[in-house]
Design a protein around this nucleic acid. Sequence first.
DNA 1: TTGTATGCGTTATCAA
DNA 2: TTGATAACGCATACAA
Lengths: 340, 340
Amino acid sequence: MAVTIKDVAKVANVTPSTVSRVISNSPRISEKTKRKVRKAMEELGYFPNFKARSLANRSTQTIGLVMPNSTDKVFQNPFFPEVIRGISKIAHSMEYALHISTGETEEEIYEGLVRMVQSGRVDGVILLYSRINDNVMSYLEEKKFPYTIIGKPYINSDGISHVDNDNFSAAKEVTKYLLKLGHKRIGFVAGCLNLMVTLERKRGYESALLNADITINNDYIVHEEFLREGGQEAISELLSLKEPPTALVVADDLMAFGMLNTLDEMGLRVPDDISIISFNNLLLSEVSRPPLTSVDINIYNLGLQSAKCLIEKIKQPDEPAKRIIIPYKVIERNSCKKLS
Amino acid sequence: MAVTIKDVAKVANVTPSTVSRVISNSPRISEKTKRKVRKAMEELGYFPNFKARSLANRSTQTIGLVMPNSTDKVFQNPFFPEVIRGISKIAHSMEYALHISTGETEEEIYEGLVRMVQSGRVDGVILLYSRINDNVMSYLEEKKFPYTIIGKPYINSDGISHVDNDNFSAAKEVTKYLLKLGHKRIGFVAGCLNLMVTLERKRGYESALLNADITINNDYIVHEEFLREGGQEAISELLSLKEPPTALVVADDLMAFGMLNTLDEMGLRVPDDISIISFNNLLLSEVSRPPLTSVDINIYNLGLQSAKCLIEKIKQPDEPAKRIIIPYKVIERNSCKKLS
DNA sequence: TTGTATGCGTTATCAA
DNA sequence: TTGATAACGCATACAA
């Protein structure tokens, strides 16, 4: 049996409640007894029992992380380790632990979340993605359980605390960048259309074209879940048009990689034959050939702020919802070329 | 206040202990009362309180995951999402939750783990990496706390449950493959030398060369933590030798990517000018240019088995340690060429 | 500043 | 087959 608060109390010659107060560093305990008790704790190698603590406390000091469908290709995205790194940085410093929850289907994810919340395993939740009609979100909303979203909420975005980039503007800027380089036939390669990021980026792309008086050509918009299965065909179809695009806005670096491959196989060279610009600025966009011009969305910070925001929410549930926009930055490399 | 076991008891007209027995599906409760109680639970929307349960139970039904240093480049490796996917598959089906722990320094990781274990937050731990002289491991060993390692333990590998590939043989096979293609000057690009994987793969590489009566040339062995910082120089140094290698065994796909980039910048073409073979068969090795010949180590299964193994260990602490070797498979693509 | 008593929501031990 | 009662280890309202 592990050493408990009682053992410490005995050794320090005080009552368990005193020890408890020392643990929580109560100001109404004399420095002298604090020292005495701490010495006893040290001697005995005492660690507060988490289970008992949280039962008495009604708090677990842990944050639940809801990841997307694990069989989904999205899951493989280095976005997640990086965002978790940011979250864990704050969590650690605030003495919160991380509890991850995922599943193979949306049903599993939902049920996992409900169990996690209802059984009181976590004090709050961070949704690592934002998609349309997400019942996970509805549930949290209805329960008024503390949570934060990374991404833009599908509905009621003013009433829900979230951390996001301005993906609309980013996509718009990037498309304008291509326009400025002289491109007129610009395509858009989208990821999963249920995700808000995708939608926002697409909106931005379209807005830039409209502003430039270019009508949106739906043939230029490809919806690809991901690179592997089938992706190739849709892409090659796109490029086999009579008037193929001379530049592409790709919704994600990972997809851009797939593109590079497909293009290579088709004998097209980037950026000479076609320009590519994408998002996220993953480590890989740096080491690809050619290195990709990409929008750095500061994933780490996205995680950091979401954790900060959630913890504040947990501590002050009545504060109004916050919206935090993390600045992005276009990183120019060698995948875009001026059209002559 | 949430609904408790008492509320259910009242509604069902039984005592809390009976309800508790229904929850754990005790065989000594009549079907009739079970139905009655379950109906009451349903009606009230009852969920067992996790905190109270684990306090009374002395079990948390959660598995701790120890990740490497989060600032480390290793962390970015898609290896982790994939291994977690495998772990979570089993965990989910056995009703275990996942608790992740990481830190920015080794000290932080160690302290995080100790807290996690001592405070009784988890029932067991999976180390997602294996490195030499790991105090995390020593600690778990000393405490006799249930744990499993993914990778080969540095010491006492017969006494410690672990899940691994036969990285020695894999590297050997892969090197022999290059030898068979006619390569004689074969280099090795290593990742972090503290990691057991790296060491094993290097051993395999060396063994193959020795078997072929080729003396090991230390100039051909490059230790690169990762692709970005500084990596380039070491690589270009290697390739600027009077007799540069004609083929490279690279310890990891991610590094191989970096290599492709560096080689490209140096004007060397893969596989025409130099062959490359690497490990892990990440999604990316498929979409790189050229697609990489890589060893598929079945990361998902690594995770799956480690979770299975740990849960068994938790349930039967006295069973002897297990070693589980996951088969690997060389996936031939287009990064290696026969030397004429 | 410290001690006493009680509660947190379950499970487990005994009885019945 | 079920009920009463005591843990589980800690926190806190109240008393001193």
